[in-house]
């Protein structure tokens, strides 16, 4: 499938999902659910293999790289926040990363997931390239890890408003750190809705969670598996 057609189709359906979400706030219209679903439907009807679509989507996937780099901007703009809260941020994210790995492991046992699912799932809270690296380190299936990372992102941005309501979370710091910690870049994108401070905290949590999880993956996970 040609790159032009794929980009236009994807961008058009993405704009549509974004437009609908401004009118009705119903989780099924989330751009990461609604748009992929319509694309899958379209390529199935047109009898196009998913790999052909993916081959034409390189421009869009490529932009994920510069997009992660772009998060340096809100961090720089709120440098004073970083300096002031660096200790709290590091401790919070360290605890969060351990909770993420241990809860994935425990729940996977409870739900009797097969071993390659279980291992591939452990780094699901961190950003895609890092998660794939941890997955490879610990003997998981990186391709499966990408799927789990995406599902985590979707879950995270869908449940965030209810979680914050349930636990009576008011501060931008708590919202931002929780989003970046639990739902990586997709969570950080959600944090834009809560403000620039929340975005900064979320970015810091996302980067730090990635780095900490890599270290945990190399040092601690092998002790348990």
């Amino acid at each position: 499938m040609n790159i032009f057609f794929v980009t236009i189709l994807t961008y058009g359906l993405y704009r549509l999902a974004k437009f609908i979400t401004t009118k009705v706030s119903f989780p099924l219209f989330h751009p990461l659910l609604f748009t992929p679903a319509l694309i899958i439907l379209t390529i199935t009807l047109l009898n196009i293999p998913a790999d052909d679509y993916l081959a034409g989507a390189t421009l869009l996937t490529h932009l994920l790289g510069p997009a992660v780099i772009a998060f340096a901007v809100p961090v720089y703009k709120h440098l004073s926040i970083l300096k002031k809260y660096v200790g709290k941020i590091v401790i919070t994210v360290l605890i969060g990363s351990i909770v993420a790995i241990v809860s994935s492991y425990g729940l996977a046992l409870v739900f009797q997931l097969e071993e390659h699912f279980l291992i591939s799932m452990l780094p699901r809270s961190i950003t895609t390239p890092l998660a794939m690296e941890v997955s490879e380190d610990t003997g998981g299936v990186p391709a499966l890890t990408i799927v789990f990372v995406i599902i985590t992102g979707i879950c995270g941005s869908l449940i965030a408003p209810s979680v914050f309501k349930l636990f009576a979370i008011k501060s931008q710091m708590a919202k931002g750190l929780a989003l970046g910690m639990s739902a990586h870049a997709v969570g950080t994108n959600k944090a834009l809705q809560y403000g620039e401070e929340a975005t900064t905290f979320s970015t810091l949590a996302m980067v730090l969670a990635g780095v900490i999880t890599i270290i945990l993956g190399r040092v601690f996970i092998p002790l348990f598996l």
């Binding site: 994807t10 961008y11 992929p36 390529i43 989507a57 869009l60 997009a67 995406i150 870049a185 997709v186």
Partner: peptide, 10 residues
């Protein structure tokens, strides 16, 4: 950002 994740989701 979500736009760039869509192909992976597909």
């Amino acid at each position: 950002l979500l736009l760039f994740f869509i192909p992976s989701a597909v």
